[in-house]
Amino acid sequence: MAVIRLALIGMLTLLMASTLQAGAIEVREFDDPVMEQRYRSLTASLRCPTCENQAINDSDAPVSRDMRDRVYMMLMDGRADMEIRDHMVERFGNYVLYNPRLEGRTFLLWGLPAGLVLAGGVLVALVVRARRNASARELSAEERARLESLINRGRTE
């Protein structure tokens, strides 16, 4: 019982902490819903450079705030999403992208899953083909004689 109560208190504290944190993030008003959507998706896809694994829309770190301000300013300035992402990568590195770009360095990252699926498929195909060949082959005279004797032994017993 005490354990459950403790767990409940812990959960409540966590919940309160997360709402408190959300309170620290400024609210921005947009006239244009498309702009608002772009702002949301940009700030959700950029990673805070100083907190581990938090998007800048979810972090009250000073640098995240600066980045959100910059995203907002650049949006108002009529810049494209791509330009804004490039702007951040130029300063904070590829680390800030939650979706790493497909380039030489990340080729393995993107290619490995597809490569493994392909390799698995080839393996399965090979095994299936080998089995089919093995079962379709005719029995040799020797094998037939052995089979015959096994069957006969079964009958006599």
Binding site: T50, A61, P62, V63, D66, F92, G93
Partner: peptide, 12 residues
């Protein structure tokens, strides 16, 4: 305002 800091990618 951390203007130059931002250009330098300073995060702390």
């Amino acid at each position: 305002d951390g203007e130059l800091g931002f250009e330098l990618g300073v995060y702390g």
